[in-house]
Amino acid sequence: MKKCVVTIDGPAGAGKSSVAKLLARRLAYRLLDTGAIYRAVALTAKLRGVPWTDGAACATIARDLDIRFDFVADKNHVYLAGSDVTSDIRTPDISQGASQVSAHPQVRAALLDLQRRLGAGGGVVVEGRDTGTVVFPQADAKFFLTATEGERARRRVSELAASGTVVDYEVTLREIQERDQRDAGRDVAPMVPALDAVLVDSSAQTLEEVVDSLAAQVQARAAGHVPGRPPSHGNDR
């Protein structure tokens, strides 16, 4: 059976990380979190005192980034130069920084080859915001995962609370709206669904329901049963 490249794009709080992790486990695929790579650049810039608005300096950091991923106790851990930064890159501050550094064309160009090398060979689930349009435009199966703004804010608040960080719902909602505008409005690689992506609204679906649907579509694709784009299972445009 073919080992596919699967892309999952969408806005913050749509459930991409949870879906991608479980889908990768279900399919016995590798997991590539491209958003974590931009977060790693933002974290490194902050630690070095480099402003997130300095595109040239952030691009230099991106070109020299020493990053790897590894599943530990069923969690996808991120390592920078050998140090585990999984929690450090998930703070609200670094989330905003990642959105800012990702808007620089030179940063995106510097990371494009790295992302493609990490996903080479197939058998990988790639999560991000432009993975189906820019990073892997020839991916075997593409999904664009979304949810209502209110639901995404609620999930983000719950996620941070579980890790010991308390944030205000209204502030989180406003940050999500601002990030959506930045990500969708940037000139280079804006966050938009690929033309051949399956749209999945997870607002009223459980995590398991979403993963079941996506896994069935990828498996059909891998078996060669789908000559065109993956079936929509009711979520296609």
Rank of each mutant, 00 (worst) to 15 (best):
A109L: 03
A73D: 15
L173F: 08
F69Y: 13
V41S: 07
V41H: 00
Q217M: 15
G228N: 13
D64Q: 15
D140L: 06
L65M: 01
D88W: 01
G35A: 06
V125M: 03
S163T: 03
G234I: 09
A62T: 08
D183R: 12
R174F: 01
R90D: 14
E208M: 05
S99H: 02
A139N: 10
L27T: 08
L118Q: 03
A222K: 02
L207D: 11
V192W: 10
D180W: 14
A223W: 00
G13M: 07
A141V: 13
D9H: 11
D130T: 04
R68H: 15
A162T: 14
S102H: 03
Q100I: 15
V188Y: 11
T148D: 14
V198E: 01
V226P: 03
R229S: 05
D187Y: 02
T172S: 11
A120H: 13
F144R: 03
R90C: 06
G123P: 13
Q138M: 11
L32K: 00
Q100N: 00
T133G: 06
V124K: 12
R152D: 07
L112P: 02
A141R: 05
A184V: 10
R25D: 14
K21P: 04
D196V: 05
T44E: 13
A20K: 07
T165Q: 14
A20M: 08
I67P: 08
S83T: 15
R26W: 07
L118E: 09
D196P: 10
V107S: 03
L23P: 04
V134R: 05
L199F: 06
V218S: 10
S99I: 00
G234N: 13
D84H: 02
I67C: 12
D64P: 04
G97F: 02
L214A: 05
V124N: 11
L65I: 15
L32T: 09
V124I: 12
A42F: 04
A147L: 02
L160Y: 11
V126H: 10
V200H: 12
I37C: 04
D183A: 14
V166F: 02
Q205H: 14
I61L: 12
Q96I: 08
